[in-house]
Amino acid sequence: MQSLKVTDISGFLDPVARPWNGIAAERVDMMPSPLGLQPNDYIIASWEERPYGELEVLSAASVHDGQRIAVRLVWEKDKPSAGAGEGFPDAAAIAFPVRGDPLLMQMGSADAPIHALQWRARGNETRSVNAEGIGSSKPGPDVAAAGKGGWSGGNWHVVMTRNLAVPQGGAVLVSGHATRIGFAVWNGHNEERAGIKAVSLDWIDLELEA
């Protein structure tokens, strides 16, 4: 997957903005996160006979302008779950390795953490998250995370953006260099939250065009 260099990213902050039509999207295969990797026996027991993470494919595209990166995700959802009241929100995340060779499925480790942006339909907000293993996620560094999602025509369209250069603890992205990216999607109607989600099979190479 490539993040194309554009002169100004501001035209790409809206997930249905016209400029996205000219950006080639990658088809990402998704699967349920492994049940055996859930952080406790309760979650395993309560989901072992219950389907989750049924989203099979996600469309991902990206641009950057040397200062900020934007990643646009599109996935099918017959109706949106905003997570109002007692409901659980639809949500999506993009993850990057901070250092070392973290296992995406295991949400990294102390030696090889991962850094993610998570967008949630509840409040239409995007936050920065660090993880050093299953169930360890905590607020991440300030990367000027922003995002916007909109649902139309049976699809969620979500854009998440952040700075390329980030404080310690974040995943540094450099124009002209390659890194890796991972994806997760939560179906709020199915009460999916935490580790109960659809995930990309593994890291996908992401090259930031020079």
Binding site: N40, I43, S137
Partner: peptide, 10 residues
């Protein structure tokens, strides 16, 4: 506490 054991966030 079953609640404590079930929380993935500790």
């Amino acid at each position: 506490p079953a609640c404590m054991e079930a929380c993935p966030r500790g």
